[in-house]
Structure formats: C-alpha cells, structure tokens
Design a protein around this nucleic acid. Structure first.
Length: 302
DNA sequence: CGCGTTTGACCAGCGC
DNA sequence: GCGCTGGTCAAACGCG
C-alpha cells in the first residue's frame, strides 16, 4: 500500500487500460485471466486511493482538527478510537482523519477500521476477537468499557512478532450489536501475513460484502474472496481455512504465493466465475472500461 | 507448567 | 489544576 497505490502512470493506467481493450494474443486463457485480474486489482487500488484523497480533501476545510471531532451523533473522543455509534460515515472519517494527521509523510493511514458482521450472541471479547480475526495472530492485553458504548472494547497486540507495533481494538457496535468494529493501528514490521485486512479499510460496511466464503466459494479451494458492492475492492483471502496445518497457515497470504500451476488454474477459474456472476462487479468494470475508453480517445478523433 | 486471558490499577492526554 | 476518559501494564487466574 505504501508504494503500490502510487499509481504508476505509464503501465498502470495507460498501457494497462489500453491493452485491456485488446484481445489477448499468444497466451493461455489462464494467463489472460491472471493478467486481467492483476490489472483490475491495480486499477481498483488506484481508484481507491484517488477516492480516499478526494474524501480527505473534501473534509479538510471543515475539519481543521480532525483528531478532535465531537459530533453529536458520533461521540468519538479521539480519532484512533473506535466510534461504534455511526456506522455509515466513520470509515471514511477514519481514513480522512488519518490522512490529515500525516498529510505528507504518511501516504497511507496508520489507522484502519473494518466492520465485521458477527453473531450477536457472542458478546464476550474472546469470540469478538475470533470473529474479527484476519489471519494475524493477536494477543489480548486489555479490555475496557468506554463511555459511548455499553459493550467492552478489547485491545490486542500482534502476537506474531513481539516487536510488531500493530495494535487492534475490537468493539461491538452500540447500535447494531451484530456488528463488530475493529480498528488497526500501525503497520506490521514483519513479512508474514502481510496482506491482512488492509483492503477492507474504508470500504464501507461489511454487510455490503459478497463473501465467497459464505456463498460461492469452492470447497476445493482453501481461500475466500470478498467483493464489496461498490466494486472498489476485491480481497483474496488465502488463509488456509480448511487444513489443520499451522505451518501452512503461516504462509503469506499474497496472491503470488508459491502454488502449483494446477492450483493457480483452478483458483483463477473460480475467481473469474465469481466475478462473472457478480452483476455489480460487472457493471463497475464496464463503467471503468468505458471511462478508460473515453479517456483514451483523442479529442480530435471525432 | 506454560501460555493466554482477565481485570484492577496506573498513566497520559485533553477539556473545562 | 482537576477531573474525565482512553490506553496500557502486570499480577492473578484459568485452561489445556
């Protein structure tokens, strides 16, 4: 995220989008699909960064001190804190506030908030952590009842590396107890499990996500895919959910993890099938391609 | 017995 | 300066 969303203007938007309109020559269908998926992911990341920048710019004039933003409905004491009382805007607020806190030195927010739909009966903190788990291993170091939320807030640290500065706070939403709000602070300073849930940050309510794990996923694949309705984010979760091997669970969840060609082929086919069946994704993709086509057509060509 | 969780105490930041 | 609140620490506790 640090350098990835920098949107390389040459290959990312330009050549990538242009070649996206051309037929794929001299490549296998799997490679075509992989390339296509890679470009879509790149484009998705680029557009996300742009939207976040717009959001930050939009809020900046009204909120010179975003770290302290006492709004009547959202009793957020501090920016990094969890505000579980207003679900709709808070993700964007967290991103915008984080960007304002570090406008130049920190290109990506240190504070990320995600929401997870959870079983409302699991009110205890341990199940909260379990529900909101993200592939990282967390160690709980505290719990606190905050003023604006009757449900306790649990504090977690990354247990994978003792020196890892990342902390995580999990709290049940005051208005919708079936919703968990997890706030991540800091960046993991270790290589393993690097993708975590950063792709979810600021992407809206978790209830808008189409989770392949709960619906379309293949039992043959140890992975899950989440696509949010806005079409902005695709998250590949390669956590080995099915197998009991802890060693395999420690494999970095990057898409380019070393797997067999057969696995890659099946995985790509599954992904493509998922994407094709997602009408909203197809619509978003169509719009993005159309926009790029318009962008590429010279003015004098008409 | 080791490890993770719980929970009360303590500390720091902020507003009044 | 004081009080409130969020965040962290660390000893006690529980579980496998």
């Amino acid at each position: 995220m640090d350098d990835g969303d920098g949107s390389s203007p040459t290959d990312g938007a330009g050549a990538g989008a242009a070649s996206g309109l051309l037929p794929f020559f001299s490549r296998s269908p799997v490679e075509e699909l992989e390339e296509k998926l890679r470009r879509l992911t790149e484009e998705n990341r680029r557009l996300t960064g742009a939207l976040d920048a717009i959001l930050a710019g939009h809020r900046a004039p009204h909120r010179p001190h975003a770290a302290r933003s006492p709004s009547p409905s959202c009793a957020t004491a501090r920016a990094p804190s969890l505000s579980t009382s207003c679900a709709a805007r808070e993700d964007a607020d967290a991103v915008a506030a984080s960007r304002q806190q570090a406008p130049t030195a920190e290109p990506w927010p240190k504070v990320r908030t995600i929401r997870v739909r959870a079983d409302a009966s699991d009110a205890d903190a341990s199940s909260m952590a379990e529900t909101a788990k993200d592939g990282h291993q967390w160690r709980k170091y505290g719990q606190k009842v905050t003023r604006d939320n009757p449900y306790p807030r649990a504090y977690f640290r990354c247990a994978f590396a003792p020196s890892c500065p990342v902390t995580k706070k999990v709290q049940r939403c005051a208005e919708d107890r079936s919703m968990l709000v997890a706030t991540y602070e800091g960046e993991h300073n270790h290589a393993a499990k690097s993708t975590e849930t950063a792709e979810f940050v600021g992407r809206g309510c978790a209830s808008h996500q189409h989770s392949a794990a709960g619906g379309v996923s293949s039992p043959s694949l140890p992975c899950s895919i989440s696509i949010n309705s806005s079409g902005r984010t695709i998250t590949l979760d390669l956590t080995n959910q099915g197998s009991g091997s802890t060693a395999e669970a420690a494999v970095p969840r990057e898409v380019d993890v070393a797997v067999s060609p057969e696995f890659k082929r099946v995985l790509v086919e599954e992904i493509v099938q998922l994407l094709k069946n997602d009408a909203e994704f197809v619509a978003s993709l169509t719009n993005a391609v159309a926009a790029k086509v318009v962008e590429k057509i010279p003015d004098r060509s008409l």
